[in-house]
Design a protein around this nucleic acid. Structure first.
Lengths: 287, 287
DNA sequence: AGCTGTTGTCGGCCTTTCCGACAAGTGCT
DNA sequence: AGCACTTGTCGGAAAGGCCGACAACAGCT
């Protein structure tokens, strides 16, 4: 496998401040971004990068200053705000084989205000990477995942209680539901729709996966929406908003069942684990 | 038929300047927007309005100043930029029966740079409104539509050659296509996908309509997209970008065939013709 | 004509954002 | 240690955007 061109940078105070943009490490920019026309005085271009939800983020990439450096300006601030990034969080850029740019976010462990949380969180774990997890999966090794929702908000790891809740629900065609939706421009909104079917994302490759297995039709047909969602992303219409419990002792079985989801996503967004170690964001231990 | 609450305002220099927001005519705001809590010193609320593509635009609606007046502030500038509105263009707000807010844009005739275009454009026509057109349709009166693509960019009126072109194409399931797409944040992008079926929007109400009759699956499933498009909105994959001809003498037959499309849309976005006459944007003559 | 209510434009002021200057930091020899 | 290069932070300047002041304008009596 050819290693994809990617980089990961922990955000500095300057990166997240409203005062400026994002300082792109030189090697990173040259590796991942389309080449600029360096004959110009201030070469620049528009970058479009997709996050895991398929949202496209647009940035102005400019090479300027004395000494010269790569910067993301216009668009960066919106990204930081919408993703609620703070200094210490990390962003990840990845250039696919087709040249398409993808980006991801990894939040730093943030100590919540109020009483500190001792015990297993401070436990020093053997921190390994997503790459190692993938390896363990492919070689069928046993591994455990310790997941601390206070320290991570990985898009691939679903809170166990949220997942359990979705198991309690029996989804069937015709059912009405609602779902929170992150919009490009502002705060999240709620949308409603009707379930039109239950299918699998890719029965051949990931049989039994519950990842994106609901086919839905949104009430607002004109609005562009996902046509497939995962059961844990929706609530039946009428129930109140699900509260996010702070319990942190999730067990393996639930996650095992969602593992094909993890794997499936990994296939379209491989993350080698050799750039920056997973800080305290996602604690993973191979036994 | 109960007349819907709507208003149309031609944008002033102040409305389109980057310096400020949008000044909402008093009657208009009281007619169309949800009532504010006037006991507060500066009553305000968030408005969400959908355009014809189903995109949601969010505005802060505030009642302030001395003397008091209604203004749209936050969000307005983004709208002006994305829609490329200039002083002289018009916006239209409409409150549906269900309270849902819709908005549209009507561009002023803009004289293109370069050689001016004489003859039939300057012809003084008996300008009537969409309401009159709807009336003519319902009473089966004959009417002609003179359409000048330079003076209008109505979302309902499809350039005849574009429509003809789509008739030449026989769309069938499995065909690949591409389509330009207006994104929320910036410039338009091209997306590709595969046609999964051909159906009608609402066979019962608009039999034979070609409006939104293609069912499609986008290559990028994660990106939220429309699942139905009209034949004239797409091009078969492989062909170059369609050039927009400047011929202006479109005839009735083509439009007649798309009339059910017009009608279908009108049902969800009726436009009475008693506020501001159609400037030079859409020249319609009833015979 | 005069009054009243509406609304277009402006100056003031604050925030956001773009820019190079500068220097701290890093890796190499 | 010394050098070359990279990059974090800063001040300055420009642009964006919110506010009421003020006055032009329209409609009515």
């Amino acid at each position: 496998m050819t290693t994809p061109h990617m980089f990961c940078k922990t955000l500095t105070a300057s990166d997240t401040s409203t005062h400026g943009g994002f300082s792109v490490p030189r090697r990173a920019a040259e590796d991942c971004f389309p080449p600029l026309d360096y004959t110009q005085q201030r070469p620049s271009q528009e970058l479009v990068a997709k996050d895991l939800h398929g949202y496209e983020w647009k940035f102005r990439h400019i090479y300027r200053g004395q000494p010269r450096r790569h910067l993301l300006t216009t668009g960066w601030s919106a990204f930081v705000n919408k993703k609620k990034l703070v200094s210490g969080d990390a962003v990840l850029f990845l250039r696919g084989e087709d040249g398409e740019l993808r980006l991801g976010v990894r939040r730093a462990a943030q100590v919540k205000c109020g009483p500190t949380f001792p015990a297993p969180c401070n436990h020093q774990l053997n921190q390994i990477s997503f790459g190692d997890v993938a390896n363990a999966i492919s070689t069928r090794n046993v591994f455990h995942i310790y997941y601390n929702p206070r320290a991570s908000s990985s898009e691939f790891i679903i809170p166990f209680n949220k997942f359990l809740k979705s198991l309690d629900q029996s989804f069937s065609a015709g059912m009405r539901f609602k779902m929170r939706f992150e919009t490009e421009d502002a705060a999240e909104r709620r949308y409603t729709g009707i379930i039109t079917g239950v299918s699998e994302l890719d029965p051949a490759r990931w049989p039994g996966s519950k990842w994106k297995c609901l086919l839905v039709r949104w009430d607002d047909m004109e609005a562009n929406r996902l046509s497939r969602v995962s059961p844990w992303e929706v609530e039946p219409s009428g129930s109140g908003p699900g509260s996010f419990s702070s319990s942190s002792n999730f067990m393996a079985p639930g996650l095992k069942r969602s593992r094909s989801g993890l794997h499936s996503s990994k296939a379209e967004f491989p993350i080698p684990g050799n750039l920056q170690g997973p800080r305290r964001s996602c604690k993973v231990k191979k036994l």
